[in-house]
């Protein structure tokens, strides 16, 4: 369970939001809405522990995430604006290395299966620099398949994806929620998921 209470965050002199509170229970999905510059990304980065909030606290299963540090990171996965893909490595290598860094060990077959599910069949061993933007996003999203983290924090996961891929992400999200996972995300594109709650930053 992720509990955010009375959170305030600012960039430079500018106060982005304050007094923000919400609770995310297992099986819940929360969309953060707001105009450009309203602090969506800052909120997600604060939930990851990159930014220290000015006020308020973020607790994961009752413990402050700043104190938990590595224990918290083991239970969450973050997908940012940037794909976190190395151009020089193949899709397969990228996926296996990021899974390794996240503390798991991924066999080649598991990685190949995940990439194929993401619709990258035949592209697994190509260097990432020859892939299109959408394909690179798919490689990044494949990390969701090979990770058993309970909390997903997704910043604009649908950027550069085609209709087929969006449907695939919707399916992934459904599966994760069925497993009692939790999701916080932002998007500017419509996403069809049942029981979605919305938090507006204004």
């Amino acid at each position: 369970m992720l509990e955010v209470s009375n959170l305030a965050c600012s960039r430079g002199d500018h106060r982005l939001f304050s007094g923000l509170s919400f609770t995310l229970c297992p099986g819940q999905i929360l969309q953060i809405q707001g105009a450009n510059g309203s602090g969506k990304t800052s909120l997600l980065r604060t939930l990851c522990g990159f930014l220290v909030p000015d006020e308020g606290s973020i607790c994961w299963r009752g413990e402050d995430i700043q104190k938990m540090a590595e224990d918290y990171y083991a239970q969450m996965i973050y997908l940012g604006h940037l794909n976190a893909i190395k151009d020089e490595l193949s899709a397969l290598e990228n996926l296996r290395i990021s899974a390794g860094l996240a503390g798991g060990h991924l066999t080649e077959n598991e990685a190949l299966a995940a990439l194929r599910r993401m619709g990258l069949k035949g592209r697994e061993r190509l260097p990432a620099k020859v892939l299109s933007q959408g394909q690179r996003r798919r490689v990044a999203l494949a990390r969701l398949l090979v990770n058993d983290a309970a909390l997903w924090i997704l910043d604009e996961p649908l950027t550069a994806l085609d209709v087929g891929a969006v449907a695939l992400i919707e399916a992934l999200i459904d599966e994760h929620l069925q497993r009692q996972g939790m999701i916080v995300f932002t998007t500017h594109q419509p996403l069809k998921v049942a029981g979605m709650e919305i938090l507006s930053l204004s």
Partner: peptide, 11 residues
Amino acid sequence: DGTLEQMLLVP
């Protein structure tokens, strides 16, 4: 390319 961000989230 964002990989450093992911490294900060290594458990």
